[in-house]
Every structure is written in structure tokens, then in C-alpha cells.
Amino acid sequence: MPPEPLLSVRGLRCGYGRIEAVKGVDLEVAEGEIVALVGANGAGKTSLLRAISGVLPLFSGSIRFAGEAIEGLAPFERVARGIVQVPEGRQLFAPLSVLDNLRLGAFRRGRARTDENLERVFALFPRLAERRHLPAGALSGGEQQMCAIGRALMAEPRLLLLDEPSMGLAPFLVDEILATVARLRAQGVTILLVEQNAVAALALADRGYVLETGRIAHSGSGRALLDDPAVRAAYLGI
């Protein structure tokens, strides 16, 4: 019997009020994988991610993480178990310094490990080290994204949920951020990646899911999805 995946989602439904944004999704992420979630605007990608991190309550369905049912847990309890989200639009604490933002990411971890993790984040993003005393709101878009990812890494994620890390960034910064995602995987972080930039995301990912109006329309290896004519026509614009 194959080992249980790190994250397994079954029949997940969620949404806002009477509007159902995700209409019964099954999804798995194995330890060490990068899994990309692509689809048009309004397909339910962000809602699905928010349901996994616990910010958005479920209508129904189950979420298992590391062999444990977690759908009843509050967001902070899921962070303690290792599910950490980099929210869409970065959501930094703008008036707080970069350093305070990073320290807040380590809220659930011990003080000793905080310093160690700070070193790790500064090694990954040397620009943040230079700007550690600036308010996070004063950073450029790319630096803010680095800070948001750095803040999530401070929590020592086992599963990193990345929501649109390339949103609003210049093309060369998009490449830089995506290269960082690959480096994180090499360091053993499992990643669930939501991206508008579907081609780049699928090229990077081990596997991918294509979401269409709240349901999974296609799934497979990143390569296979990129080569699938139906996917290419409908979502990749090639």
C-alpha cells in the first residue's frame, strides 16, 4: 500500500454565503511535491487554498494532513501542524518592520529557532536583510513578496500554500520568485502553488490540477497538462 499523501482533500465544498465557489474537489499532495493549481479567474483556486489553511469555513468535505483530520481546526492550529499560507496580495503588516513581520511568522515556534530561521530567510532573500528595519509597506512589490514568503517560512512549514506569488510583479521578478519556489522544494518543503501564470507554474510543478468553475477539469503531471491540447486551448492561450 502506498504511503498516505501529506495532504488529502475529499469532496471539499466551500464558498461565501449562498455562493458555492468550490463544488466538491478531491486533491492530493505528496510529501516533497510541488503541485500547481491553475485555472481562470473565479475558478475557485484561492477559495480552495483558504479552505485548506482554515480561513474559509467548509460547507462539506474532509481535509486530512499528515494522517490527521484537520477540517475542524482553527487556522492557528493548522499553522502549528505545519500548514502555512502565503495569502493572495501578500497581506504584509505594512506599518511593522520587515523584522517584526518575519518574527510574527514564527509566532507558533520557539525563540531559539526563530533566530536560526531568520538566518535561513535572510540567506534566501539577502535584500530582506538589508531592509530589515524598514516598514514592510515601504518595500517594492518583489521585496514584499519575498517578505511574505519569508514570513511563512519562519513558521517552518511542512506544506506551503502559495497564492499567486507572481501577482503584480515585473516578468524578471516572476522568474526570480519561481526560482525560489524550486529552491524551497530542494530544501524539503512541500508546496501547493496557485498561479495565474499557468505555463510557468505547470513547467515547475510535479503535478497539476486545472480548476474550472469550482470543479477539477483536468489533472496529471505538469508536463502532461502542458502538452494536453484541450488544456492548452482553454487555459494556456497557446
Binding site: 487556522p75 502555512v84 504584509l92 506599518p95 510574527l104
Partner: peptide
Amino acid sequence: RALRALHDSEIAAAVAGI
């Protein structure tokens, strides 16, 4: 720090583990 964080954004504070 947690209080200043949730003042700024409750969602971001929640996903930071607060």
C-alpha cells in the same frame, strides 16, 4: 506584535498562526 498584526490584517495574522 500579534495585536499590531491583527490590527493590520486579521487574515494575515490568522495564517501567521495567531
